[in-house]
């Protein structure tokens, strides 16, 4: 199996995601350049954090038009697994692969700190290594992480069980205080209805090594690896270009 990390010109957590997947999780990982049309036969696309195209207009707004993202859209619609972290989540929202939008944090400040998130659904491809109700300690670092969805959309998301992570206290209680950015329903991460696309604001790649203070983020990568390695080779594009392993 192989991971691909998308590299927009303003991505700045691209190497961090690459490091976590390749050096910590020890899985083959390639970088995917935003101008390319080639997903290099990867089994999972990771959209990393950063400011894709400067994000001056609106977070993730321009990234969705990039050549590579057209491929990612097709890949996702075909059931390929896509993980969007922070800016990657914002791009997935703009792309329409996930419902809703992001507003500025409620206090109008960039926030970089460890938060606790509760696993709401441990059956997804992104959480199967976790327990339902498990609390993960993972850092956030964003200005626009205040999740918003129109009332009807929100109702659907909740009804379909698409909320995968919620901001919570260390003991798992979901409170207003724990909801640092003001997200609706304390939402920190959601999946699409099919369950192959997940976006979350916290950065699991920053919580993958004990030396850096938390290993809780590994749970997400481990889950992905579990699901991908068991079901391989589910939907690899037939006779695609020779995958370049490095």
């Amino acid at each position: 199996m192989k991971f691909g990390v998308v590299q927009f010109p303003g991505s700045n957590c691209d190497f961090d995601a690459f490091h976590a997947l390749r050096n910590v999780m020890k899985r083959p990982t390639v970088m995917l350049w935003h101008k390319d049309h080639d997903l290099q036969g990867v089994d999972c696309v990771v959209l990393p954090g950063g400011f894709a195209y400067g994000d001056y207009l609106r977070v993730g707004a321009i990234a969705r038009f990039s050549p590579l993202m057209q491929e990612v859209r097709t890949f996702a619609r075909g059931g390929g697994r896509v993980l969007g972290i922070c800016n990657g989540f914002q791009v997935l929202l703009e792309l329409g692969l996930l419902p809703g939008a992001m507003l500025r944090n409620k206090d109008l400040k960039f926030l970089c700190q460890h938060v606790h998130i509760r696993v709401e659904d441990a059956k997804t491809d992104f959480t199967r290594a976790a327990r339902k109700g498990q609390v993960l300690r993972i850092p956030i670092a964003h200005f626009d992480g205040n999740y918003y969805a129109p009332a009807r959309t929100l109702r659907d998301i909740e009804r379909n069980g698409q909320v995968v992570f919620r901001y919570c206290e260390a003991d798992g209680t979901v409170t207003a205080e724990a909801n640092v950015n003001g997200s609706m329903g304390n939402i920190a991460g959601i999946r699409n209805t099919e369950g192959n696309v997940l976006g979350l604001m916290p950065h699991p790649e920053r919580a993958s090594e004990a030396l850096l203070g938390s290993e809780d983020g590994r749970t997400i990568f481990e889950s992905l690896i579990l699901s991908l390695e068991r079901r391989k080779p589910a939907r690899r594009p037939a006779a695609g270009k020779a995958a370049r392993h490095d």
Partner: peptide, 16 residues
């Protein structure tokens, strides 16, 4: 002050 700065990007920061 410090929570407004991204102090963890590049995943090298051992002491916050």
């Amino acid at each position: 002050v410090f929570r407004q700065y991204d102090h963890m990007v590049q995943v090298n920061t051992v002491f916050l």
